[in-house]
């Protein structure tokens, strides 16, 4: 199959974004081992196609709401690597000057409206942004990413009903990686497809997509986002995917059967897309060049982040209130 130039350009960009997310997180992991990245962190290695595919379907004015597993979603909205890595390292040149950390990446200027670490909360918050767009008559769409485990908390159900009754321009994207933390979601969930089966109960079409196929993700996300923008209401997408590592830094992921891990590694979204692009007429040199460019970006970000100073004490008491301060008494 041959592709038009714009078509191949778009696909190479989807490839580049996935590779960038992958290499960024691998570097973040290495920096952990060097104890330069502190605290905890939840990697999305293996889940890059969801972030890349959905972000490509969004406009710059649309909003992303993500979880603590949010590095991918932040970078996919065009946030540069340096401030993200510096945030993970607790530096003053971090995205939030070190005040939020890995679990709370936010860049409002990129439409990245926050990474939320209490399960379920951001589904209802995304509804609020969508309500605001609807009320103000803009055509912005809120996109909200969350995991399979999140479908069992109350806020998930409140959000779906709320979005449905108000016909809100919000797209929910469940990244079904089969596990909550250390427990298989299917062992503790009443239905087979934790998001899609519940969507039906709120009058939404159940949409299930191969979350390791970036083209397929882009396709369903575009349809859902267009629908929302046109005032046709919310959608729920369940993307089947897999995290290559454990839940967080502390977790080696030993509770997963070897066979299962092997099967999913064989479906790694990046090599799969690599092969597809070659089959569709891209050259190996093009793909290698993309990889090199990404590595240069990651190396530069690493150097820049490392060069960042620790945040100064003047930040400690700053920005509790909109006046920039934290005063609670006179």
């Amino acid at each position: 199959m041959t592709m038009t130039t714009s078509h191949i350009t778009a696909k190479l960009e989807l490839y580049r974004v996935q590779v960038a997310l992958r290499e960024f997180e691998r570097r973040a992991h290495d920096l952990f081992l060097e104890n330069l990245v502190k605290g905890t962190s939840h990697l999305g290695l293996g889940q890059e196609a969801v972030a890349a595919g959905v972000a490509a379907a969004m406009r710059p004015t649309d909003w992303t709401f993500a979880t603590y597993r949010g590095h991918n979603h932040t970078l996919a909205r065009g946030v540069p690597m340096t401030p993200v890595l510096a945030e993970l390292m607790g530096r003053s040149n971090g995205l939030m000057a070190g005040k939020g950390g890995s679990m709370h990446l936010t860049s409002v200027e990129h439409g990245m409206m926050g990474s939320y670490a209490i399960i379920g909360a951001h589904l209802v918050i995304a509804c609020g942004a969508a309500w605001s767009a609807q009320y103000r008559g803009t055509d912005q769409v809120a996109v909200c990413f969350f995991g399979d485990g999140t479908t069992n908390i109350g806020a998930f159900h409140e959000a779906l009903n709320f979005a449905a009754i108000w016909k809100l321009p919000v797209v929910f994207v469940c990244e079904n990686n089969l596990y909550m933390e250390y427990t298989r979601t299917s062992d503790i969930t009443a239905v087979e497809h934790p998001a899609a089966d519940r969507a039906r109960a709120y009058g939404l079409e159940p949409i299930i997509v191969d979350g390791n196929d970036v083209d397929a993700v882009f396709e369903v996300a575009s349809t859902a986002i267009d629908r929302a923008r046109a005032g046709e209401g919310p959608s729920m997408i369940e993307a089947k995917t897999y995290r290559h590592g454990g839940h967080s830094r502390a977790d080696p992921g030993k509770y997963r059967p070897d066979e299962e891990v092997k099967a999913w590694l064989a479906r790694d979204p990046i090599p799969m897309y690599h092969s597809r692009l070659l089959a569709e007429g891209a050259s190996e040199e093009q793909l290698v060049a993309i990889h090199h460019a990404v590595m240069a970006e990651v190396d530069l970000a690493t150097e820049e982040a490392k060069a960042g100073t620790p945040p100064g004490p003047e930040l400690l008491m700053k920005d509790v209130w909109a006046d920039g301060g934290s005063q609670w008494r006179n």
Binding site: G120, H122, V124, I125, C127, E158, A159, F162
Partner: peptide, 10 residues
């Protein structure tokens, strides 16, 4: 949760 979440997002 939806009432207050909606207020926050808005």
């Amino acid at each position: 949760q939806a009432i207050l979440g909606a207020a926050m997002g808005a």
